[in-house]
């Protein structure tokens, strides 16, 4: 048996994974050839994989497949021909001279996407979160909770203060002071200071989350490296 046959696919995967992991970790010593090699391999493999997935999951089953099995129905023909024409027009964007043909399709995609996102944000976040802020002070909801009522009132008040002060922080209207420079009213300035505190706490929480996520990835990779070396040296 040849050496290639002796090396199992799993072992090959482990070796490639180990080499690429070490390439990425070489960034500890700054930007270098190994790090760039690793990054470029990842980008290339990802781009190739995405192209294959889109062909097999989108273009083939949702465009080419239905066209090839068209049942003769005019309605179905219209449903198929419109996406096909739009796709061809969008493809023309890669040719500089013909790219203007793809612009209306692009405009349609952007417009439909924006409408979906804005509609979703209003229905899914804006209105429910406003309702939730109001419901914090609903006695019926507070009574139905298992928590102590005074604790709920304190918590609700705290959330209300945080919400209002954060919103007021972004109130930038100002009048000129005695020296002519713009300055917010004293009350607004004080509340904005409280809002700034809450914004800082939010950014701190976000940073802590990113740190925890990064450490999780770090631990998993080093656990992999150590276990590979331990298995190589039979420890």
């Amino acid at each position: 048996m040849s050496l290639v046959n002796n090396i199992s696919t799993d072992l090959l995967g482990v070796i490639v994974g180990l080499i690429l992991t070490l390439c990425i970790f070489s960034y500890i010593f700054g930007d270098n050839v190994l790090f760039r090699l690793g990054i470029n391999i990842f980008i290339g493999v990802t781009a190739g994989y995405i192209a294959v997935v889109i062909w097999h999951s989108v273009i083939l089953p949702q465009l080419i497949g239905p066209i090839s099995t068209w049942d003769g129905s005019i309605t179905n023909f219209v449903k198929l021909i419109i996406p096909l024409i739009l796709s061809i027009l969008l493809l023309l964007k890669i040719f500089p001279r013909l790219s203007s043909f793809g612009s209306p399709v692009m405009a349609f995609i952007v417009g439909a996407g924006a409408a979906t996102i804005v509609g979703g944000a209003v229905v899914g976040t804006f209105l429910p979160q406003i309702t939730a802020s109001i419901n914090l002070f609903d006695p019926q909801i507070q009574n139905s909770s298992s928590e102590l009522i005074w604790l709920l009132i304190i918590e609700s008040s705290f959330i209300l203060i945080a919400t209002l002060s954060t919103l007021i922080y972004f109130h930038f209207s100002a009048r000129p002071n005695s020296r002519g420079s713009p300055k917010r009213a004293a009350l607004i300035e004080t509340i904005a200071g409280i809002g700034r505190f809450f914004i800082a706490v939010t950014f701190g929480a976000l940073f802590a989350g990113v740190l925890l996520a990064s450490i999780s990835a770090f631990v998993e990779r080093w656990d992999f490296i150590i276990s590979v070396f331990l298995s190589i040296f039979h420890l």
Partner: peptide, 15 residues
Amino acid sequence: AKTEPILRPYYEAKP
């Protein structure tokens, strides 16, 4: 863990 400050309000909301 990095998504917690953004997604938690959806859980804390009533309903």
